[in-house]
Write a protein that binds this DNA or RNA. Structure first.
Lengths: 203, 203
DNA sequence: TAAAAAATATGACTGCGCTCATATTTGGGG
DNA sequence: CCCCAAATATGAGCGCAGTCATATTTTTTA
């Protein structure tokens, strides 16, 4: 029994961590971020109030923990969707479309999430956010590279800057959508227009 | 004396509002946003604690109030600076440079400000932020239009989408700079590169 | 296996932003 | 000039996120 020694503590920690994140996910989704108290999360996870904050420094950290994995998956789904389209513009739009569909399922929560992505408040957050950004830009760069192979994009166009610019434009419009400046159809149109402006610079 | 009747109350309100905003500006700058309590602002403005919240719904609203005017001026200064350069790329960079210089004077505060620009929490904020965005995009559009006149930009390029895309790219990099992902020289290089990518699509 | 050490959990407590019932000030009508 | 209604100011009080000294559990040492 002593063999499991170096695992017992870690095991408990991991399991507890899982319960806390699951509880937070359920409550954030059901009641909203602001309306959920850290005490409620603690109760739902079966731990004391203060324990929450040994697993996440702040409530926002918890939000990032909750959604990091989901977002990584969404990006992968978006990449698959992109490969199902023809032409870089439509591919990129399919990619972003997947992410938008995910975000509009819960706009208030997506807003809080987006705010936090732009205001990293701890080392843990930094790691998770950077991982996510690297993945997104990497996938976009792959799409641009493939388009180069098709002769659709100038071979001289730098990959990472192109990916960054694509993302920057998407991100700007996503903010406008989530903040209610744009409705969905305006968003789609503006995004296509602006990405088109950029692509003519890549071709 | 009764002639000033419709002005007395408004006068007092305006003056008090001015004191509150000035106190908030001083404290935010000197102590930082989080470290400044609403009570301190109230004390410095010579009003009771609760009075603050009849002039601004939240502490964040106060921040927007404080910096709205300054930012509007910075944009104008940026526009003037832009006109002093030749070529759209250098003009746009001069424009953004002015804004960056302003933001890096107080990075922590700029971070909070930027967070709030992307997460509008009240009608008052909405008005001020939209006013600012309209001004920025308007000025950028003017630069693009002038470049069209010089034959530097394709006459078919839509003005507003071009301005939006320029801003989107700037905004993305500004976030990276303020969050410490980039140092200043990396920022300058990346911004120039990415704006260059976009411009080749406009020309 | 006993005792010391290290890691983790606990919940009473603190300080904050913000609210709200009450008090005060202001402007107009008689 | 006085009274009344509306606007504004007040500060005690509330609920919350996050802290910290203490208690509990796990691992290591002997």
């Amino acid at each position: 029994m002593a063999l499991a020694a170096p695992g017992r503590r870690e095991q408990n920690k991991l399991e507890k961590r899982g319960r806390i994140i699951a509880a937070a996910r359920a409550l954030f989704t059901h009641k909203g971020f602001d309306a959920t108290t850290s005490q409620e999360i603690a109760d739902a996870a079966g731990v004391a109030g203060g324990t929450i904050f040994t697993y996440a420094r702040t409530k926002e950290d918890l939000l990032i923990l909750v959604f990091h994995d989901e977002m990584m998956e969404v990006v992968e789904r978006g990449f698959v969707a992109a490969r199902g389209s023809a032409g870089l513009l439509d591919q990129v739009i399919a990619f972003f479309e997947t992410m938008v569909v995910y975000h509009v399922r819960d706009v208030p929560l997506a807003r809080v999430l987006m705010r936090q992505l732009g205001y990293v408040g701890s080392e843990e957050q930094l790691t998770l956010v950077q991982e996510l950004m690297t993945r997104v830009l990497g996938r976009l760069a792959q799409l641009v590279e493939a388009a180069k192979g098709q002769g659709e994009v100038d071979a001289a166009s730098p990959l990472l800057p192109s990916a960054r610019s694509l993302f920057a434009i998407y991100y700007y419009h996503l903010g406008a959508l989530l903040n209610g400046y744009l409705d969905r159809s305006q968003f789609d149109r503006n995004l296509r227009t602006d990405l088109g402006v950029l692509l003519r610079g890549l071709g």
